[in-house]
């Protein structure tokens, strides 16, 4: 058999055998059979001792050609095998994307805190400072300087926890922060502050009463301040928290530290003023109290009431949150049930 025939035979055999390769193992066996030390391609160049230089050259050329051809076939086969194995591996990695996710722990704000933060941002944007004061407070600041002397019957409405004789108490309102702010401002310059904080009254806890609650109080001291200024400011709050279409109303009221005093009402967001159970048929909902700062309070704090005037307002944070989110039990804010987080911890519709 001459060399040409041998080459032809090898190629025919390889074409057949390569088709039956299924794995990298098959392939390496085949490689040995053709290209190994005793492989049929390698053997072509054996027993060339008796041949002329010309013949040797010719056989060398032919065998090299064959070798590179075989190499190409093998690497082509190897590539195909790799692809097939990768596909198989990938196929084995198929997952059920409908299984539940891993819970990523993201914390949440307490509902009241969330509401307070929104209120603070609103007032900071109008140039108000956010200030705070102590919860264990002097009777002097909680009552006396607020135009509520000892024994004043209006104190009855605020049954108070005293902690030391009749001088220290758990503050029954955030108004003492107004007093502190005015007293602290030695230069007696205009003031705009908002002071959210915890307050306490001797109430038994039930769905609508809580011995601890939260007020958000604001104070503006300047010159020629009017109820119209207060109403405009209240409008901003009402629209921000209860919707652009809210109307507002002042009802005459009484607070010892403001005069005139008003109740802050918004048109009912549930019935749009037609009358429903939320607004008790009146079409209006009271959300806070306010008024023009009483002259005695200004004078008590070193602001000459013949020069300065101001308005003050207060909201119950719990009441606002109960109305805004439709919460019926005030204790909801203090039990901290983590299950409510799922529907609360998101951006609001604003």
């Amino acid at each position: 058999m001459d060399i040409e025939e041998k080459v032809k035979l090898i190629r025919e055999n390889l074409d057949k055998e390569i088709k039956s390769v299924q794995s990298t193992n098959d392939l390496s066996n085949l490689k040995v059979k053709y290209l190994g030390k005793k492989g049929c391609v390698t053997e072509l160049t054996h027993d060339m001792a008796n041949l002329s230089i010309e013949e040797k050259k010719e056989i060398g050329r032919i065998s090299n050609e064959l070798k590179s051809r075989v190499d190409a076939i093998f690497s082509e086969c190897e590539e195909a095998l790799k692809n097939k194995e990768l596909e198989k591996k990938i196929a084995s990695e198929k997952i059920d994307i409908t299984l539940p996710s891993t819970k990523i722990s993201v914390g949440s704000a307490n509902i009241l805190e969330k509401l307070i933060e929104e209120m603070e941002e609103l007032f900071v944007s109008m140039g108000y400072d956010v200030v705070e004061g102590p919860e264990v407070e002097k009777d002097l600041y909680n009552f006396e300087l607020l135009n509520l002397p000892k024994g004043h019957p209006a104190r009855d409405a605020q049954d108070t926890f005293y902690t030391y004789e009749s001088t220290l108490l758990l503050r029954s309102q955030t108004s003492p922060v107004q007093i502190r702010t005015m007293l602290k401002n030695k230069d007696k310059t205009p003031l705009r502050v908002i002071c959210p904080g915890k307050t306490y009254r001797r109430d038994d806890d039930d769905a609508t009463h809580s011995h601890q609650f939260t007020q958000i109080e604001g104070l503006l001291v300047d010159k020629n301040v009017s109820l119209a200024d207060l109403k405009g400011t209240f409008d901003v709050v009402a629209k921000k928290f209860f919707g652009e279409e809210r109307k507002t109303r002042f009802r005459p009221s009484f607070y010892p530290f403001t005069e005139p005093s008003v109740e802050l009402d918004i048109s009912c967001f549930n019935c749009e003023g037609k009358g429903c159970s939320i607004c008790k048929g009146t079409g209006w909902i009271t959300v806070g109290g306010a008024g023009i700062v009483n002259h005695n309070v200004l004078d008590n704090c070193g602001y000459d009431s013949t020069v300065w005037s101001g308005f003050a307002f207060g909201f119950g944070a719990e009441r606002l949150a109960m109305l805004k989110y439709g919460i019926s039990d005030i204790r909801t804010f203090y039990t901290n049930d983590l299950r409510i987080k799922d529907n609360f911890d998101r951006k609001d519709n604003d």
Partner: peptide, 10 residues
């Protein structure tokens, strides 16, 4: 990942 609480002072 922590959740804010508001509890009673007393």
């Amino acid at each position: 990942g922590l959740n804010e609480c508001r509890t009673y002072t007393l």
